[in-house]
Amino acid sequence: MKDNNSRRLAVDIGGLVLKNPVMTASGTFGYGEEYAAYIDLSVLGAIVVKGLSITPREGNPPSRIMETASGMLNAVGLENVGVRAFIDEKLPFLREVDVPVIANILGDTVEEYCEVAHILSEAEGIHALEVNISCPNVAQGGIDFGVNPELAFKVTEGVKNATDLPVIVKLTPNVTDITEIAKSVEDAGADAISLINTLTGLSIDIEKRIPHLKNITGGLSGPAIKPVALRMVWEVVRAVSVPVIGVGGIMKAGDALEFLVAGARAVQVGTANFVNPRSTVEIIKGIAAYMERKGIDDIKDLIGTLKT
């Protein structure tokens, strides 16, 4: 991963330069420290931390997790320590690691998103914000910000005004036309777009005729969603000009390469961390090995090279 390799793998995401295109996906990597016993965190392109809200959130009652065919459903419910506890208790550890930290943020209202964004911008050691717009907008009867182009625009615009950090907007796949939302957040000033968040799903215990998850529905992640994620990334890449970050079902280097070829400038690895805590490191090595084998000197010569 050292010297010449690191140069060839570097990518630029809205002004933030990453030493390689592999980051962790929010909610699957805790606040980083949980994985320090398993990998050298400084080899990662970036760490995206668990979504942060203005006050701590309790999350949903159990069961919160159910394995499904080649994936899992989760209804953790955006449980988090809150932005201030994150800065006081979790960020000091991450500041000591030579890795860009991206804070994933969430809220019930545009104002809440902006407040969290503002607080994080004042803190030392945050390199970018990722806005999770797959959250219900309390002021608008609970409709998700991410399914409505106007709401997505407003929250993006608000966060952009509240911070000087690069702003990545993370899209939900639970929409009819993802390109419409993507264009809307680009117009609102997003520096980059990441996708996809989890797909809403349901799993039923037929013996008891109850849902497996207490919350009834949950978010599907893992290999099961990869083809959907890849299709959506490919569509969005052609609809916008800001960098796109591919997320969804990336388990191995080959999966990450599919996203890069489809046009993603970087990728995030989520559920794979649960299966194998060393997944990210193995994926970075695998990408470098592929480039070696194919004689590709710079990863930029690989991104968006899908032949159709």
Binding site: G30, E34, E58, P62, S63, M66, V76, T271, F274
Partner: peptide, 27 residues
């Protein structure tokens, strides 16, 4: 016992609520 995905503290799948006053948000 609670259902687990990661086993190492990252996914928050296995939360139980802590007892005590004013700790309703403590997991």
């Amino acid at each position: 016992e609670e259902k687990m995905a990661c086993g190492i503290g990252a996914c928050l799948g296995c939360a139980v609520r802590a007892s005590g006053e004013n700790t309703s948000k403590r997991f």
